[in-house]
Protein backbone atom coordinates (compact mmCIF):
# COMPACT_ATOMS: atom_id res chain seq x y z
CA UNK A 1 0.00 0.00 0.00
CA UNK A 2 1.47 3.27 -1.07
CA UNK A 3 1.32 5.83 1.69
CA UNK A 4 2.20 9.41 0.84
CA UNK A 5 3.18 11.66 3.68
CA UNK A 6 3.62 15.39 4.01
CA UNK A 7 5.49 17.08 6.83
CA UNK A 8 4.48 20.44 8.25
CA UNK A 9 6.92 21.52 10.98
CA UNK A 10 7.16 18.42 13.12
CA UNK A 11 3.74 17.05 12.16
CA UNK A 12 3.43 14.15 9.70
CA UNK A 13 0.28 14.18 7.62
CA UNK A 14 -0.81 10.91 6.00
CA UNK A 15 -3.57 10.83 3.43
CA UNK A 16 -5.08 7.40 3.77
CA UNK A 17 -5.17 6.03 0.23
CA UNK A 18 -8.07 4.37 -1.50
CA UNK A 19 -11.80 4.51 -0.99
CA UNK A 20 -12.03 1.62 1.37
CA UNK A 21 -10.27 0.27 4.39
CA UNK A 22 -11.80 -3.11 5.19
CA UNK A 23 -10.74 -6.61 6.23
CA UNK A 24 -9.47 -7.04 2.66
CA UNK A 25 -6.67 -4.49 3.02
CA UNK A 26 -6.51 -3.62 6.72
CA UNK A 27 -3.61 -5.99 7.38
CA UNK A 28 -1.56 -4.49 4.62
CA UNK A 29 -2.32 -0.98 5.82
CA UNK A 30 -1.44 -1.86 9.38
CA UNK A 31 1.91 -3.25 8.33
CA UNK A 32 2.83 -0.33 6.06
CA UNK A 33 1.61 2.45 8.31
CA UNK A 34 3.56 1.06 11.27
CA UNK A 35 6.79 1.70 9.35
CA UNK A 36 5.69 5.23 8.48
CA UNK A 37 4.79 6.03 12.07
CA UNK A 38 8.01 4.61 13.44
CA UNK A 39 9.99 7.91 13.47
CA UNK A 40 6.93 10.16 14.08
CA UNK A 41 5.37 11.57 17.20
CA UNK A 42 2.74 13.94 15.89
CA UNK A 43 0.54 12.58 13.16
CA UNK A 44 -2.57 13.67 11.31
CA UNK A 45 -4.60 11.15 9.25
CA UNK A 46 -6.40 12.83 6.40
CA UNK A 47 -9.39 10.60 5.66
CA UNK A 48 -10.94 12.53 2.76
CA UNK A 49 -10.48 9.66 0.29
CA UNK A 50 -12.07 7.01 2.44
CA UNK A 51 -15.68 6.21 1.65
CA UNK A 52 -15.88 2.99 3.58
CA UNK A 53 -14.28 1.63 6.74
CA UNK A 54 -15.32 -1.61 8.44
CA UNK A 55 -14.47 -2.96 11.88
CA UNK A 56 -11.10 -4.29 10.68
CA UNK A 57 -10.21 -0.92 9.17
CA UNK A 58 -11.24 0.76 12.36
CA UNK A 59 -9.10 -1.68 14.33
CA UNK A 60 -6.13 -0.78 12.14
CA UNK A 61 -6.59 2.96 12.80
CA UNK A 62 -7.00 2.18 16.48
CA UNK A 63 -3.68 0.34 16.44
CA UNK A 64 -2.02 3.50 15.07
CA UNK A 65 -3.44 5.53 17.93
CA UNK A 66 -2.10 3.03 20.41
CA UNK A 67 1.29 2.92 18.74
CA UNK A 68 1.63 6.72 18.96
CA UNK A 69 0.14 7.06 22.42
CA UNK A 70 2.53 4.37 23.57
CA UNK A 71 5.51 6.62 22.92
CA UNK A 72 3.89 9.86 24.06
CA UNK A 73 2.89 10.88 20.56
CA UNK A 74 -0.39 12.13 19.22
CA UNK A 75 -2.81 11.21 16.42
CA UNK A 76 -5.51 13.49 15.04
CA UNK A 77 -8.07 12.53 12.41
CA UNK A 78 -9.57 14.96 9.94
CA UNK A 79 -11.59 15.37 6.74
CA UNK A 80 -13.78 12.42 7.55
CA UNK A 81 -16.54 11.52 5.08
CA UNK A 82 -20.07 11.00 6.31
CA UNK A 83 -20.21 7.19 6.19
CA UNK A 84 -16.86 6.87 7.96
CA UNK A 85 -17.97 9.35 10.61
CA UNK A 86 -21.15 7.29 11.04
CA UNK A 87 -19.12 4.15 11.73
CA UNK A 88 -16.92 5.92 14.27
CA UNK A 89 -20.00 7.15 16.08
CA UNK A 90 -21.66 3.74 15.88
CA UNK A 91 -18.87 2.13 17.89
CA UNK A 92 -18.28 5.28 19.96
CA UNK A 93 -14.77 5.76 18.64
CA UNK A 94 -15.45 9.48 18.15
CA UNK A 95 -14.93 9.66 21.90
CA UNK A 96 -11.58 7.92 21.70
CA UNK A 97 -10.11 9.79 18.72
CA UNK A 98 -9.62 13.52 18.30
CA UNK A 99 -11.50 14.22 15.11
CA UNK A 100 -11.33 17.56 13.27
CA UNK A 101 -13.32 18.76 10.33
CA UNK A 102 -10.41 20.16 8.31
CA UNK A 103 -6.73 19.42 8.09
CA UNK A 104 -6.02 23.00 9.23
CA UNK A 105 -8.10 22.43 12.37
CA UNK A 106 -6.12 19.31 13.16
CA UNK A 107 -2.77 21.06 12.64
CA UNK A 108 -3.89 24.04 14.73
CA UNK A 109 -4.92 21.72 17.54
CA UNK A 110 -1.51 20.05 17.56
CA UNK A 111 0.23 23.44 17.63
CA UNK A 112 -1.98 24.80 20.40
CA UNK A 113 -1.30 21.76 22.41
CA UNK A 114 2.40 22.49 22.15
CA UNK A 115 2.00 26.18 23.05
CA UNK A 116 -0.04 25.41 26.12
CA UNK A 117 2.87 23.22 27.15
CA UNK A 118 0.87 20.00 27.19
Amino acid sequence: MELTTETVDDVTIVVLPGEQLDAGNAKEFKRDIAAVLEPCRKVVFDLRELRFVDSSGLGAILSCLRQLNGKGGDLKLCEMTKPVRALFELVRMHKIFDIYVTKADALRALRQREESGL
Binding site: D54, S56, A60, L90, V91, R92
Partner: peptide
Protein backbone atom coordinates in the same frame (compact mmCIF):
# COMPACT_ATOMS: atom_id res chain seq x y z
CA UNK B 1 -17.02 -5.10 22.37
CA UNK B 2 -14.98 -2.64 24.43
CA UNK B 3 -15.63 0.96 23.56
CA UNK B 4 -12.67 2.40 25.45
CA UNK B 5 -10.14 1.94 22.68
CA UNK B 6 -8.21 -0.78 24.51
CA UNK B 7 -9.14 -3.46 21.99
CA UNK B 8 -8.83 -3.28 18.24
CA UNK B 9 -11.27 -6.06 17.39
CA UNK B 10 -14.61 -7.49 18.39
CA UNK B 11 -16.82 -4.83 16.82
CA UNK B 12 -18.18 -6.86 13.92
CA UNK B 13 -21.22 -8.47 15.53
CA UNK B 14 -22.04 -5.28 17.34
CA UNK B 15 -21.93 -3.31 14.10
CA UNK B 16 -24.29 -5.79 12.45
CA UNK B 17 -26.72 -5.60 15.34
CA UNK B 18 -26.67 -1.81 15.16
CA UNK B 19 -27.04 -1.42 11.41
Amino acid sequence: PKFDGTEEGGFGMYIISQT
